[in-house]
Design a binder for these strands. Structure first.
Lengths: 139, 139
DNA sequence: CATATTTGTAACCATTATAGTTACAAATAT
DNA sequence: ATATTTGTAACTATAATGGTTACAAATATG
């Protein structure tokens, strides 16, 4: 997932929805994120597929949260977006080499554990936490 | 750093060096990794700049470890390679929006903490651990 | 000293991922 | 009906990456 901004954009959008009484259009979200509405639709459609948000087309349509923001854990958002593992194994080490032929397993174990710790950390925060942090921030 | 294989390649190369009595050429390392020698030189030059390995040009030259493999912590290798943060903030949220104008700080805190946990996990293992894992692996 | 070996590095290409953009169909509220 | 809004395909521009070629510089050895 690395360099992708989708995770940050998703949290931004969810936080906006958490702070809003009614639904928000892709246009409105895109304006706050400063990007194109299509980028928002693309990003949000994954969250919708996993039941975090709903959308309604047409006049007075837009996006809204399905669950209260206290129940939207950042780890879940991260996992929905999926994407590459943060640490990736190199493609095709030489199987005829005693090191190259056996390094993938050990590496995979170490990389998986590290990623699990990263996700565990994201599991400590919800969209509600982000919103309350923002409200504590002086402008 | 995400999708990049440089971290995995570096650990692979360091593990090869740990298992070798003499120096190894970029050619030999590249053969085990299955890539081009220039890719190895590029990757290793960063490790050399940080004192993990040395290189010598010319006949019977090549790469060798500076420290024993028990003292090469994977977190240090990871940090040397540097690159992007694993979780990246989106570029330019709208500063006139009460959410967009304040979301960067809270996000940065959460992302930094998660990355620290990832690196802490990598801090638990050394190149010697990888080599010993490999030696336990049945071929 | 001549030669073979090996790193150092610049330059370039191909591939891939991403964000951004345009365009338009379909759905919806009024 | 009409205006609004999502859904989605298609395309472009940009950037990162790995791979490759080419050649200079350094080094060991006979």
């Amino acid at each position: 997932m690395n360099t992708s901004q989708r995770f940050a954009i998703s949290i931004h959008a969810l936080t906006l929805l958490a702070a809003s009484s009614g639904p928000l259009t892709s246009e409105a979200i895109a304006s706050s994120v400063d990007t194109n509405p299509v980028v928002i639709r693309r990003t949000m459609s994954g969250l919708r597929a996993h039941g975090l948000v709903t959308s309604k087309p047409g006049a007075h349509g837009g996006w809204r949260l399905v669950r209260p923001p206290q129940q939207i854990v950042l780890r879940d958002v991260y996992q929905i977006l999926g994407g590459e593992d943060v640490l990736s194994i190199h493609g095709h080490p030489n199987q005829h080499c005693p090191i190259g032929g056996r390094i993938k397993g050990p590496l995979k174990n170490i990389f998986n554990e590290a990623q699990t710790e990263l996700e565990k950390s994201l599991g400590k925060y919800t969209v509600a936490d982000v919103l309350s942090d923002i409200r504590k921030t002086r402008s």
